[in-house]
Write a protein that binds this DNA or RNA. Structure first.
Length: 945
RNA sequence: GCCCGAGUGGCGGAAUGGCAGACGCGACGGACUCAAAAUCCGUUGUCCGAAAGGGCGUGUGGGUUCGAGUCCCACCUCGGGCACCA
């Protein structure tokens, strides 16, 4: 906005807003306005805590990219800031700060691109982010800001890794003591169980007879962090392995979109599957949206059923089924082509066909294999298995619709009761006997179009000792079959999950080094805490070795592998100085974000990752939490994007539960209430060559879009520099000020909805602040200029209604409607010609959480020499929320035909009489007698004629 | 295919089952100005009407109700997630 020369000197312009904002930002920092006291530890200030409830408000911390912030990034941050400011003004001790998730692939790639060490680029980016965020007036406690790349921080990431490495999951934790459910316990307690003989060794030999190496191998098999040689996702294009959660549905990498191949490799895994049940069950404790809970449930993918053993020439084959009740209908088996028994099963005459099919399946990319429109394929092995319920001999096939990665990699095929098996049986002419009699379908399955799934009477389902023929319920059928299987040793009730263990190592440079060394036998040893932090070694050779994206058989090379001076180390781990080799992997980007909220609480503590008392205060369970109901513990409000539904949010819950089991934290879950903010979308424009053009230069004419003379096409998406539609907060702050930007972002719509950015619309909030300013300050002199007379009764009532409404809106994060109410009040004051003296303070205090800087400035003009950050938020006077008279709309047959104004305490008969007496209502009735009159007190009258 | 959401003026969006369209943008008219911008005042769902007033209106079709944007059923469209998961 250009400021005209002849404009009033103290008009609220972009320039004045900036001056006010920078001044108050400095003052907040100097005075430590937003420094939050702890009950104990280095940041303790118990006096300032006494008698105040606490609230922990958390943003998903950003990854500091090289391009800085655009206006889409701070949407959630502004929301949490407003909420935090409001909570402070209503008496809460508020935990609110910001950190940086700065390890990981993007930071490393940016460094490689710019040829600078990632530590340098990361620091520069963090500095830019801090400047941009400060400019928005966010009320963070700056002392608590952390970066995951800071050795003082990752020291504790490594420490937590060591805790996980040095623990095991006791599946019946109740046996010794403690909770009935399973839980993580220190590995020493497992060693003690073996040593005392309470837990037998795998081969039954006494613990004392085992060599150190043998003991180590047994113990390593129990650790929650373990090295495994199993199929992992190898991404040659990135030069690293990645987690299941980082692979997209079409078999490519989340980052970079390179092909990913399943390969057996020796890698670090985290035993998150041990927590599958608790991760699932404890979702019920959380105040999250059903959408996110559904995504997590789906990812964990719990299925109840049974494992059933079939006899075959190559030994027993176990299958998992969710429908043990359909065993009588199992007429063939299908193994995944990769199943280890396939070679042994194939009969001589089938060997060549089987080998061919296996090769064909192996060469298929995941993307092809997952195309479910494809017709099913498979070949018979020539071998037969025995169905345990009826002793029938059934053929064993292999087919790629059975996946090695789920269940046991083998299925019993029940063509009448499973659509996939049905299709396969039809295709290859396999029998489809009916074992249920579905309503309206005959027992002749050749007339069926699909498999039948549901409750129906069983038929042909009896073997003498198990008889389902008389029942109709699938649940009952499952129960009876499971009992029979267990009683006869043919199987056992079982639960299967889609969730896999978490692949935790990356062949990169820019991450936390593993606090692990290997001895000469290749056995891993955790470093003692005294060796932490294990610093990331300095080197110029930080580029990862990447490969042709399609080169499946390339092998990963960690950058740290090249640093001989670092990898070879002499250490005394309790049995004298010995040579070791360091682990040359680094942790994935998710490691640092698995626990950062805990470090915010006690960022400078060098003895603990967080002081236990401090953790209890901010995160502990509460019998009566905010809002009056019990609070199971965790962050009170966590705001961030939905894209982390199954990555960060699952990993962080897992780590937190381990820390809980080991007694390091008091809360079962890290994030009690999760709120997913929407995205700011922006239009991007492409010219005829499909090249993006600067969105800011595009103009609209007659419904079409032009860049210069060129016709361009519009599309909506996220903002980004690469698609030339990024608007930076700096631009908007320069033109209008941060307060206008904050209001605009909040007024655009509800916080959880995505909305398109329109720079054109920003001016609306600017005008609001300008009017607000003018209602309190003389534009010519800059002096306070409120009306001398006190507010009239109507104005008073409006103020108190507004207070009431704004409070409700703030509590519910409805900042858009809070702003609308304040604008309404301000518009009313504008009509009065200014702000009556007695309502200036409540007005300014209500604006304060939203437009913090201008509110502070007005507050000081009102004669206060301290910040309003801790002033009490106005409280509505209940007496002013009710009125003497009330206006009723009067409907005739549901249509509004008139209005009456009557005394608020008039009884129903009186209201009815007044309504019927209204001339417009009488006209509408046209003499007809009312059949019925509905009166909703204080609300509405409806006359049925 | 399955699981979540969402469909309201020219646009962003408001509405404990009770006056649909708060608030903002834009547009139109006016004030100020030589003029424009900025600022201020007013109008603005749509159709009929000079007006008073009236008809129609929340994706579609049914239903519940004195009364439905809101609740129920079926469907359509869009967005997101999962997907041969046994």
């Amino acid at each position: 906005m250009t400021t005209p020369d002849d404009a009033p000197k103290f008009r609220y312009t972009g320039a004045l807003a900036q001056e006010i904002e920078l001044r108050w930002q400095d003052r907040w920092e100097t005075e430590g306005t937003f420094e939050t006291p702890n009950p104990a530890g280095p940041l303790a200030d118990p006096d300032r805590i006494a008698g105040r409830p606490k609230v922990f408000v958390l943003d998903m911390f950003p990854y500091p990219s090289g391009t800085g912030l655009h206006v889409g990034h701070p949407l959630g941050f502004i929301g949490t800031d407003i909420y935090s400011r409001y909570k402070r003004m209503t008496g809460y001790n508020v935990m609110y700060t910001m950190g940086f998730d700065a390890f990981g692939l993007p930071a490393e790639q940016y460094a490689v691109q710019t040829g600078q060490h990632p530590a340098i680029t990361t620091n520069a980016n963090v500095t830019t982010y801090r400047r941009q965020l400060r400019r928005l007036g966010l009320s963070h406690d700056a002392r608590r800001s952390v970066s995951t790349t800071d050795p003082a921080y990752y020291r504790w990431t490594q420490w937590i890794f060591s805790q996980i490495f040095n623990s095991w999951y006791d599946t019946d934790g109740g046996r010794d003591a403690g909770p009935e459910e399973g839980r993580a316990r220190p590995i020493d307690e497992l060693v003690e169980q073996f040593a005392s003989g309470r837990r037998p060794t795998p081969d039954g030999r006494p613990w004392s007879d085992l060599s150190a190496a043998e003991r180590g191998t047994i113990i390593d098999g129990y650790r929650l962090a373990y090295v495994s040689d199993a199929p992992v996702n190898w991404c040659p294009g990135l030069g690293t392995v990645v987690a299941n959660e980082e692979v997209t549905a079409d078999g490519r990498s989340d980052r970079g979109n390179f092909p990913v191949f399943k390969r057996n490799m020796r890698q670090w895994m985290m035993r998150i599957t041990a927590y599958a049940d608790r991760l699932l069950a404890d979702l019920d404790l959380l105040d999250w949206t059903d959408a996110i809970k559904a995504m997590q449930r789906n990812w964990i993918g719990r299925s109840e059923g049974a494992t059933v053993h079939f006899q075959s020439p190559a030994g027993p084959i176990s299958v998992f089924t969710t429908r043990p009740d359909t065993l009588f209908g199992a007429t063939f088996m299908v193994l995944a082509p990769e199943h280890p028994l396939v070679d042994a099963l194939a009969t001589p005459d089938r060997r060549q066909v089987v080998a061919q099919y296996r090769q064909q399946a192996a060469s298929k990319k995941d993307i092809d294999r997952q195309d479910d429109t494809r017709e099913k394929t498979g070949v018979a092995t020539g071998a037969y298995a025995i169905n345990p319920v009826n002793g029938e001999s059934i053929p064993i096939w292999i087919a790629d619709y059975v996946l090695m990665g789920y269940g046991t990699g083998a299925i019993m095929a029940v063509p009448c009761g499973d659509q996939r098996d049905f299709e396969f049986a039809r295709l290859y002419g396999l029998p489809i006997p009916a074992i249920q009699q579905p309503p309206e379908l005959g027992l002749d399955t050749s007339t069926w179009e699909n498999a039948f799934i549901g409750d129906a009477p069983y038929v042909n389902s009896s073997n003498g000792s198990l008889d389902l023929n008389r029942i109709t319920s699938v649940a009952e059928g499952k129960r009876l079959t499971n009992e029979w299987l267990e009683a006869n040793g043919h199987g056992v009730a079982a639960v299967t999950y889609k969730l896999r263990d978490w692949l935790f190592s990356r062949q990169r440079y820019w991450g936390e080094p593993f606090p692990v060394v290997y001895d000469s036998h290749g056995n891993p040893h955790g470093l003692p805490d005294s060796e932490l932090p294990l610093l990331l070694p300095e080197t110029d050779s930080f580029s990862p070795r990447t490969f042709d994206p399609d080169d499946e058989f390339s092998n990963p090379e960690s950058p740290l592998d090249r640093l001989e001076w670092w990898t070879n180390v002499e250490l005394d781990l309790g049995d004298g100085p010995q040579s070791y080799r360091r682990d040359t992997n680094v942790m994935p980007q998710w490691a640092g974000s698995c626990w950062y909220e805990l470090r915010y609480l006690d960022p400078t503590n060098e003895q603990h990752f967080v002081d236990p008392e401090v953790e209890r205060y901010w995160m502990g369970p509460q019998e009566v939490g905010n809002g009056g109901h019990p609070h199971p513990g965790g962050v009170d409000l966590y705001v961030g994007g939905v894209e982390h539904a199954v990555l960060h949010l699952l990993y962080a819950r897992f780590w937190h539960k381990v820390l809980f089991d080991l007694g390091h934290v008091s809360s079962k879950e890290p994030y009690y209430r999760l709120f997913n903010q929407g995205y700011i979308l922006a239009a991007a424009y492409k010219d005829a060559r499909e090249i993006y053009v600067e969105a800011a230069e595009v103009i609209e004419r007659d419904g079409a879009y032009y860049h210069g003379d060129q016709l361009v096409t519009r599309e909506w998406g996220k903002m980004g520099k690469s698609i030339k539609n990024a608007v930076t907060p700096d631009d908007i702050c320069q033109s209008y000020g941060a307060d206008t930007l904050r209001l605009y972002e909040m007024a655009m719509g509800p916080l959880d909805a995505s909305r398109p950015w329109e720079t054109r619309d920003v001016v609306g909030m600017y005008r609001f602040l300008q009017r607000l300013w003018r209602n309190v300050v003389d534009e010519e002199t800059g002096e306070l200029a409120v009306l001398d007379n006190p507010a009239d009764a109507d104005t008073q009532r409006l103020v108190h209604r507004t207070i009431n409404g704004v409070r409700d809106d703030m509590d519910a994060l409805r900042f858009n409607t809070a702003i609308a109410k304040l604008i309404e009040l301000n518009n009313h004051l504008t009509k009065l010609g200014g702000c009556p003296a007695d309502i200036a303070e409540p007005l300014v205090l209500m604006v304060a959480p939203l437009a913090a800087h201008v509110a502070e400035e007005l507050w000081s003009k009102l004669g206060h020499d301290t910040s309003l950050a801790l002033e009490p938020f106005p409280v509505a006077d209940p007496a002013l929320l009710v009125t003497d008279t009330v206006e009723y709309p009067v409907q005739v047959n549901g249509k509004v035909r008139g209005h009456i104004t009557v005394a608020a305490d008039l009884d129903a008969a009186g209201v009815e009489a007044a309504a019927l007496a209204d001339p417009k209502v009488a006209t509408s009735l046209a003499g007809a007698a009312p059949k019925k009159v509905i009166i909703v007190p204080g609300r509405m009258v409806n006359i049925v004629a």
